[in-house]
């Protein structure tokens, strides 16, 4: 709102600060923005507040009329959640499944994206279109056939896919694969080709060029893809509810165990929800700038 910047101003990091500019927004815009953002923040945070506050309430506070504030603060629910249902086991299962699915998905997506980005070959378009179109399939269409395939593979080869973590890992990694490949293609395209050509001449094979040049330059994109893959696997419900048994159950299904009991322990459910959310939300918020950068470079181009 002060003096407009002169054209002679050199572009320095300081120039990106909210300095005066001819586009200083009018007061009415500032006010409506303030009101809108406040309302939106309230809408977003309301469930988070309910989750946190209810998880610190004694049971009596969550069975009667809703209370904004706990009558007394207690960490009891956080102790009880581990014994009401075998939450620890579900947690470990989810960690194994989501972790393995993420690692495999990222590695496979890196190879595929490198092939598409750096090589021209017959069937390239068919491949990218087919992979992307699998995003469109309703999960319900291949749930039962996949279940039958896993059972048949198990009967024929003895590899237990149905009911095992392996089957779930295999399924989840393909869920995040199409989007990951798509995003990494865009990201790899933005890494100059001269770089890997130079590396090849310096004696690296094609894979050497991939791992020494392209992958290091595309780390933000790879991190973004990994975050996405982990979140996808950590949150999936449909296949987890059909393809797991008591020992391999993941959090997505296990958490429902609290509400099927005779008394619904809402304080424990909220505590458990918070505990299972913390790893992904913390990881996501730490890495979200990579996701935005990855989307800018990849998908949105």
């Amino acid at each position: 709102m002060a003096s407009p910047p002169t054209t002679a101003t050199p572009v320095t990091p300081a120039a990106t600060k909210p300095a005066a500019s001819p586009m200083a927004p009018p007061r009415s815009f500032l006010w409506s923005r303030r009101i809108f953002l406040t309302l939106l923040t309230g809408f977003v945070l309301l469930p988070v507040y309910v989750m946190v506050s209810s998880s610190l309430k004694p049971l009596a506070d969550v069975t009667g009329e809703f209370r904004w504030l706990p009558t007394e603060l207690t960490i009891r629910p956080y102790i009880d959640i581990w014994s009401t249902v075998p939450l620890g086991r579900y947690f470990v299962n989810s960690l194994i499944v989501a972790g393995a699915a993420t690692v495999c998905s990222v590695v496979i997506a890196v190879f595929s994206a490198y092939a598409v980005s750096r090589h021209s070959f017959r069937g390239k378009r068919v491949f990218t279109v087919t992979v992307l179109s699998t995003q469109m399939f309703p999960g319900i269409l291949f749930l039962l056939p996949l279940f039958l395939i896993y059972v048949n593979i198990g009967n024929a080869t003895g590899i237990a896919l149905f009911g095992s973590r392996g089957g779930l890992i295999l399924t989840y990694l393909t869920f995040s694969l199409p989007f990951s490949i798509w995003m990494l293609i865009g990201y790899f395209d933005s890494v100059p080709r001269d770089l890997d050509e130079a590396a090849k001449v310096d004696g690296c094979g094609p894979l050497g060029a991939l791992f020494r040049v392209v992958v290091p330059a595309a780390i933000p994109g790879i991190v973004a893809v990994a975050v996405y893959a982990f979140m996808t696997a950590w949150g999936e419900v449909l296949f987890a509810s059909v393809m797991t048994n008591d020992t391999t159950r993941t959090l997505a299904v296990g958490l429902q165990g609290y509400s099927t009991l005779n008394d619904v322990y809402w304080n424990q459910i909220m505590a458990a929800s918070l505990v299972v959310s913390v790893p992904v939300v913390a990881g996501f918020l730490l890495l979200q700038r990579y996701l935005v950068a990855g989307l800018t470079a990849g998908a949105v181009k």
Binding site: L45, P47, V48, M51, V280, F284
Partner: peptide, 9 residues
């Protein structure tokens, strides 16, 4: 945050 939270939670 709503996007990052697991759906079921």
């Amino acid at each position: 945050v709503p996007y990052a939270l697991p759906v079921y939670a």
